[in-house]
Write a protein that binds this DNA or RNA. Structure first.
Lengths: 333, 333
DNA sequence: GAAATAATTGTAAACGTTTACTATTATTTG
DNA sequence: CAAATAATAGTAAACGTTTACAATTATTTC
């Protein structure tokens, strides 16, 4: 049906090996023959079959990107970073949403391996790394992103969560806040724990500041959760003067709850988030937060992966790059 | 290196055709042989090579998704809809960001065809459809999404922009607004025009309402643009009592400008957007807007495409489905 | 229990490339 | 101008599957 190298060869009166060479600009084909072949190819609307090529070259120039949910405002930028870098290097990406479901994530990994991707970028939906995971990392180049503990057995790029938490805490304290509060996502999430750790360190470092256990709460990573938790705190008259939410969505929920109760942000309660999602800067939100270099993270992950792909398996080594968080001061703290 | 059907065949002492049949659950292989083969396959950690299969079956179970920019809050939901539906039907998606660049979009189309995707979903970066585009639609199943005029020569799924604009206008008028204003994205964008058309119709339908040409402005689709345009209007003392922005980002910028000038939304000026992006509902934004069924659009596009793929080319027919917009009343109008 | 039929398995070609190796032709060299 | 060399082109195998067809083996039927 579609045009193949053979068709071109026939029309040009040469063998199809020659056509292949001409098309791939390999040296060793007569310039005039090549010109002729190229012309015929374009006139026949020839489109090289990357599947066939992939089969013989054992390379698809394709990588898999598995993230929990592209709809979560954290991930589009990451994905864009991955895509931009990949495109620049001649790779395409399969986008897969694991929907925070480890089983689905694993199914995707399996599928992508069947599709013979050259490598995999994974923002895991769970923090723990299983034996099965390690097994996968030995089958193909993988780089992990975001919320991954060190010693994962493969390359990873993460933000310095502890430092981010620390910066948030320090800033709040400098602003004269005394009664701190931490509202985190899922308690078993690695990054939630790390951000808390940094925040806790900051609180500890100042004797006049408290971070009492009843002002450390966990839920999940959605806005509603922030709203609910904060509302409860307010209703119980357990009122901090500053809250650090472990991500921006949560922080927005927290602010809503505070304002709904008639209190003011930041006058009565300062609120600081984490991630600096695009919406944090929107109009009336103006959230003070910690920048999580999302785009850069994606870009780096892709860069590291592509570098790995170019190396023979025994030459590949695992890198861990830790990105710097940064305080973004807006209006809520 | 990796395990192939031949390796399994050898170990099982059968021909590799039999292994292929067993693995694919084709009828005509002895149950006990199959059991044995399956066991060997799994013990050897066999992963079928989808590339090789794709070559012979001339089907990759892969579709391409080209959108302008996943970082634009409109697209993640669309992409998610596409992905969910595709996954359900056993297809993977290549994600490509054209970055609103027609040239890049075309390069991607070409690349995806080389990678032999079974079909293509395209949210075009430009409104006009060229001869080249039509040529492409004849090469493989394509469905277009969002901002596509009818008669595009292939299937498409869009929202009823005219109706959306009309609903916005009607609502503002019902609320007693008299001096309407339209702030649109790029003037040559099809959807910008359509939304205006509907809005204009609504304005026309009521004699006590004005929509004067100096209150119809165009820019691009970013927040800043909305801010800038509105600011100018306010500075020139050309002040409407209601503005319909052709998307939410623009609307947010408009609101910022209004509030920065000391006026109140919605008391002094009502603002209504379009798209209902997630951030429109966030905390303090609470934007009144027109729902654009983004997820549904992606889901439908994928559904229509997959249906098309299953049909012989001559059986494929072009569908155009028009989704209903819906008024979402929040706090800005 | 032989013939007919059904079930299972094997053989080989095909999918569209790339590439090692060989063959041919053109060019240089002394 | 013959020999040596360089440039160009061709042949055939390989990549890992699927599948039409043929071959074999098992089962049924009378």
């Amino acid at each position: 049906m579609t045009v193949t190298i053979k068709d071109i060869a026939e029309k040009a009166g040469v063998s199809y090996a020659t056509v292949s060479r001409a098309l791939n600009y390999k040296y060793g084909v007569n310039p005039s023959t090549r010109r002729q072949i190229l012309e015929i190819a374009s006139s026949m609307n020839y489109s090289p079959n990357a599947i066939a090529r992939g089969l013989v070259k054992k390379q698809t120039h394709t990588i898999g990107l598995i993230i929990p949910d592209i709809t979560n405002p954290f991930f589009p930028e990451v994905a864009r970073g991955v895509e931009d870098m990949s495109e620049k290097m001649g790779y395409s990406i399969f986008l897969c949403n694991s929907n925070w479901d480890k089983t689905k994530e694993n199914r995707y990994v399996k599928l992508l391996i069947e599709k013979r991707v050259d490598g995999l970028i994974l923002a895991p939906s769970a923090s723990v790394i299983t034996e099965e995971d390690r097994q996968i990392y030995s089958r193909l180049p993988v780089v992990l992103m975001s919320g991954v503990q060190s010693g994962s057995g493969t390359s990873s790029v993460v933000v310095d969560n502890v430092k981010g938490g620390y910066i948030a805490g320090k800033y709040l304290i400098e602003k004269g806040r005394k009664k701190l509060c931490y509202i985190g996502g899922a308690e078993d999430s690695f990054s939630v724990k790390e951000r808390f750790e940094g925040f806790f360190q900051a609180a500890e470092s100042s004797i006049s500041v408290s971070l009492s256990p009843d002002l450390v709460k966990f839920g999940d990573y959605r806005q509603k959760s922030g709203y609910r938790i904060m509302k409860e705190l307010l209703e119980n008259r357990n009122i901090p003067d500053a809250v650090f939410a472990s991500n921006d969505l949560l922080a927005i929920g927290v602010i809503q709850a505070i304002r709904a109760s008639g209190l003011k942000v930041p006058e009565d309660i300062s609120v600081i988030g984490f991630d600096n999602i695009a919406a944090a800067g929107f109009g009336e939100v103006e959230l003070t937060t910690i920048e999580h270099p999302k785009y850069r993270m994606g870009e780096l992950a892709a860069g590291i992966l592509l570098e790995k792909i170019d190396l023979k398996p025994e030459m590949q080594e695992n890198k861990r790059v830790v990105l710097e968080p940064e305080l973004i001061i807006r209006r809520t703290a």
